[in-house]
Write a protein that binds this DNA or RNA. Structure first.
Length: 950
RNA sequence: GCGGGGGUGGCCGAGCGGUCGAAGGCGUCGGACUUAAGAUCCGAUGGGCGUAGGCCCUGCGCGGGUUCGACUCCCGCCCCCCGCACCA
């Protein structure tokens, strides 16, 4: 198979049938899928989204469209840069990954350069898709980042446009930051266990000592400030005394470092050990209560301010710390705080159904927390209490105006209130200190030269919403809903990254920043329309250096003079005009196939950017598919059940893999399932398909019988259905009909005609069969087309079969069903009738009067009549008695009355025609009689003859 | 929690108010073919009963409801997957 596949790939390439140029005389279709990120090989999951675009491209090509299907590659962002650095540093994990790909020890060091990754993996991707038979116009391929100057220029143009429109704005933004290297630390720069942790905003309640010194306590639950009984401080930790924005604070050193990076003016003026503060009192800035500072070892100086407030009634940590302290005579003695501690009573703030007035106590008991060192149980207890209180708890009376409401409802309002009264501020922290790969402890910095895409802009949102009206989403309405919702809540997006940790296109007006990867890939499909010019610039005399915004203004907007611009970049007016034509002809994109995870970001971003830059040229149809499971299990490298596209191609070849991918699912947001057994099976079956067709093509007889009409009807019905499913991209339904159902019909037809098909009918059907399978399994289709049918053309660009509606013959199909059912019934009767070696089967048709009568009965039943008396009216008086029982059971179960399709004569004719077949099927002689004196005969109904085994 | 999508037979998956004991595929079982195995073809495949094509029971996450009728509609619950942002 692989050899056949390679042969046709070469033929297609030689004939350039997938290279598409603007041709205004033909209707066009522009199909894309998101360019893959090139830090590794693609796997079956990627291929699943991609195969939708590929199948659609092939289908539309066969439907007579001029189809553009290009493919580029994405290199923007941090992973490649991080991977290259790790190779330079000799990280064994990354070296192992490259070894698994089969790179030699000599070659691996070259991957210390990001360019090596980009080059290697974009080539591997390209080769993988090529070997899968993708019908891509490779002339238009490219990769992103400033390493590809023309694309770089294009992205810069885009951002200048956005900036002009006021859609890129400057702001500040919290990031995880390495204070030593002074760069932001993304997931790829961290030790693995810290991946995925981001900055969180905590509220800092400013308790004060008598002299005004602020004792700041960080908390996620500022609403519990009403129930503070004391402050916890770590007795053994050295805190700093600092001037913070003009106030005197006592805070952990790490906390002070955070404040410095978060736009606060911080000056450290002294140090103080935690225990020195123990026993002192501070004033609660919200309630005015005076509360003591007490020692606790669970307090982490590396989280927030390193000091926390204690709300024993509602915080399991606080409850157990207090319990611990009460029992700890030594400590009580040491600080002379015994009396203070004994006096502390928890304050109940929030009522929660199913809990006592002190939910923290309940939780501590439930999870069996023994001491404040029992971290695991405490975390569970805390989570439970937090959730319960947050969503369902009711605030008690001491909340005054907030009383009776839930935390969820009033939290934000309360925080604002506290800030306004000078009782609180906020700071950014990570829930645990993050360590980067170099071993540095990272903090949260508020970065100031940060640029944002202003997705919060109401006018922009409105424009984005408008384009949805003329956009199709598949599956509708699920995918649409996700996008609609995202447009609503999406706010400003930090669209730049520090150049030191990433790769991409620099912001035109700030070269310390790269445009972030999701933000540089929103309208690049437009670049495909001219990519073959710009990626081969020298061929057209274009000096890429000279390309500026005016160049793109002309190509995309038709602004300016082609002659002038041509001169400036060193090419001709013709070339400029040709590029303009390409864009005008191909844009907008007609179909873009993605995974469901992209709906909330890439898809929505792309919609926004099109609305801003290419109004009315937005993408016309988006598809979103689910993940791909492998044999019902999630695919993952760690499980070792991940299969790359290259591996699949080597193991099963392109067509079998494509078939199994198509069969993996329809176009829904649900997960699809790639079954390796299907791929394996198709490896066997596809060549057999060719043999089968070779065996029958051009064979058969000339006579045209009813059964041939039946066959044509079935085939046309399948073509119709397959055509619709291709347009809908329900790939599983396509395969179900075009392959499995077609096989069934073909097999039955041959059996039914005793291997004597109508030559013309059957051969035409075989050709149609190959065509309707071609978008899914193009190689074997091409092979059959040439080698079996002896055609000169490529089936890949042949006309898709057109349904002949006049050939769809409902009645003929029903008549054949009648024959089939009769066979089934005979088989059943033969099984039950214990007649040894039956001599013959007699089929007795119903009496003539029954045809009219039961047609009427059936009609009445279909119209909802459930009254025996009424049904009886349809029966001639003299026969009523005989059918009374039947009619009364038909009222309960209308199925008992068969549908009357034809006349008695037609029934007889159909059975006679099928007699030879039936005898062969059943291995018994069959006689069809109209008159036969046997009691069973009165059981006969129209389309349900009586059967007698003798 | 919010937003999106789901839970169907041994497995995968259709169905989304009657025609459903549930398409199709896989698997399993029986038969044909074959020296044999494989492949292929035919049949069966929830349980039970049946010397005549039939009947009974049970059934599409759980519990209710609407309806003459629910896998399909409504309500409540349980469980699973995805996203929740600066990561591609």
């Amino acid at each position: 198979m692989q050899r056949i596949e390679e042969k046709w790939q070469k033929e297609w390439e030689r004939a350039r049938i997938f290279e598409a140029d603007a041709d205004p005389s033909r209707p066009k279709i522009f199909v894309t899928f998101p360019y893959p990120y090139v830090n590794g090989d693609g796997h079956l999951g990627h291929l699943y989204s991609q195969i939708h675009a590929e199948i659609y491209a092939r289908y539309k090509r066969m439907k007579g469209y001029n189809v553009l299907f290009p493919q580029g590659f994405h290199a923007t962002g941090q992973p490649i840069v991080a991977a290259a650095r790790r190779i330079r540093e000799g990280d064994p994990k990354y070296i192992r990954i490259l070894k698994q790909y089969g790179f030699s020890d000599e070659e691996i060091p070259e991957f210390g350069d990001p360019k090596k990754w980009i080059k290697t993996f974009s080539e591997r991707w390209k080769s993988a898709l090529h070997k899968m038979g993708f019908s891509i116009d490779w002339r238009r391929s490219f990769h992103t980042t400033e390493l590809n100057p023309p694309y770089d220029k294009f992205v810069r143009w885009q951002y200048n446009k956005l900036k002009e429109k006021g859609l890129v704005v400057k702001g500040s933004h919290p990031v995880v930051w390495c204070p030593v290297e002074e760069i932001p630390i993304g997931d790829h720069d961290r030790q693995d266990e810290f991946a995925g942790i981001g900055p969180e905003e905590v509220v800092v309640i400013k308790f004060r000592m008598d002299d005004g010194t602020v004792i700041p306590t960080g908390t996620y639950r500022p609403e519990t400030v009403y129930g503070v009984t004391n402050i916890w401080i770590h007795p053994d930790v050295e805190y700093v005394i600092a001037e913070v924005d003009g106030e005197r604070w006592i805070i952990s050193e790490w906390g002070a470092e955070h404040l410095k990076e978060q736009q606060h003016d911080v000056k450290i003026v002294g140090r103080v050990k935690g225990e020195e503060l123990v026993g002192k009192y501070v004033k609660n800035p919200v309630t005015g209560d005076s509360v003591p500072i007490l020692p606790a070892t669970f307090v982490d100086p590396d989280v927030a301010t390193g000091i926390v407030m204690s709300v024993p009634a509602h915080a399991p940590y606080d409850w157990i710390a207090l319990e611990d302290l009460k029992k700890d005579e030594e400590t009580l003695e040491k600080y002379g705080i015994k009396e203070i501690v004994q006096k502390i009573e928890p304050i109940s703030l929030i009522g929660v159904e199913g809990y006592s007035e002190f939910p923290a106590k309940d939780a501590v008991e439930k999870y069996g927390v023994k001491s404040q060192k029992d971290v695991e149980a405490l975390e569970k207890a805390t989570e439970e209490i937090y959730k319960k209180e947050f969503y369902t708890g009711k605030l008690k009376g001491l909340y005054g105006e907030f009383a009776g409401r839930t935390v969820q409802e009033v939290k934000d309002e309360m925080i604002e209130r506290f800030k306004d009264m000078g009782a609180a501020t906020t700071m950014w922290v990570t829930p645990v200190p993050i360590i980067d790969r170099a071993g540095h402890k990272c903090l949260v910095k508020i970065v100031e030269n940060q640029w944002f895409l202003k997705y919060s802009d109401e006018k922009w949102k409105e424009k984005a919403r408008e384009t949805l009206e003329t956009t199709r989403f598949d599956p509708e309405p699920d995918a649409r809903r996700a996008v609609e919702h995202t447009i609503e809540w999406l706010h400003d997006w930090a669209c730049t990254r520090d150049v030191r940790s990433s790769l991409g296109t620099k912001l035109p007006w700030d070269d310390s920043q790269y445009i972030e990867s999701l933000s540089d890939s929103t309208i690049y499909m437009a670049y495909y329309t001219i990519a073959h010019y710009l990626q081969n610039a020298e061929k057209y005399g274009i000096d890429v250096e000279k390309i500026d915004d005016a160049f793109f203004d002309y190509v995309f907007y038709g602004k300016g003079d082609a002659e002038d611009i041509a001169k400036k970049v060193g090419t001709t007016k013709d070339v400029m005009e040709a590029m303009r034509r390409e864009f005008e002809y191909w844009y907008p994109v007609d179909l873009r196939s993605t995974g469901k995870d992209l709906l909330q970001n890439h898809v929505t971003f792309s919609i926004f950017h099109h609305a801003a830059i290419f109004p009315n040229k937005h993408i016309r149809r988006w598809t979103a598919n689910g993940w791909v499971l492998l044999n019902g299990e999630k695919m993952s490298k760690s499980k070792g059940n991940s299969i790359t596209i290259i591996q699949a191609q080597e193991q099963w070849g392109a067509d079998a893999t494509r078939f199994a991918e198509a069969y993996a699912g329809n176009l829904t947001l649900e997960d699809a399932n790639f079954e390796t057994e299907i791929a394996e099976q198709m490896v066997e079956e596809l060549p057999r398909w060719k043999d089968f067709i070779a065996q029958w093509y051009g064979k058969g007889i000339d006579e045209y019988r009813d059964i041939d009409r039946w066959f044509e009807s079935r085939v046309n019905r399948i073509i119709k259905m397959v055509d619709e499913e291709y347009e809908a991209l329900n790939t599983r339904n396509i395969v179900n009909a075009a392959w499995f159902e077609f096989w069934r019909v073909v097999r039955y037809y041959l059996r039914r005609t005793m291997n004597g098909p109508n030559k013309e009918v059957f051969s035409n059907a075989l050709e149609d069969w190959v065509k309707i399978m071609a978008p899914v399994t193009p190689h074997i289709a091409e092979e059959i087309w040439h080698e079996v049918f002896g055609k000169d053309s490529f089936v890949s660009v042949e006309k898709f079969p057109k349904v002949d509606e006049s050939k769809i013959d409902e009645r003929m199909e029903k008549m054949e069903e009648f024959v089939q059912r009769t066979v089934d019934d005979i088989r059943e009767v033969m099984k039950l009738a214990k007649v040894e070696e039956p001599e013959r089967v007699v089929i007795m048709l119903a009496d003539q009067w029954k045809y009219d009568a039961f047609r009427k009965v059936r009609e009445m039943l279909e119209n909802g009549v459930r009254n025996v008396g009424q049904l009886m009216e349809a029966i001639p008086a003299e026969h009523r008695k005989d059918v009374a029982k039947l009619l009364s059971s038909a009222v309960k179960n209308p199925k008992r009355i068969p549908e009357v399709i034809g006349t008695r004569e037609e029934e007889k004719e159909a059975l006679e025609q099928a007699r030879e077949f039936m005898e062969a099927e059943l291995g018994v002689k069959i006689e069809i009689v109209e008159d036969y004196d046997h009691p069973k005969r009165k059981n006969a109904l129209p389309f349900k003859p009586a059967i007698l085994v003798e």
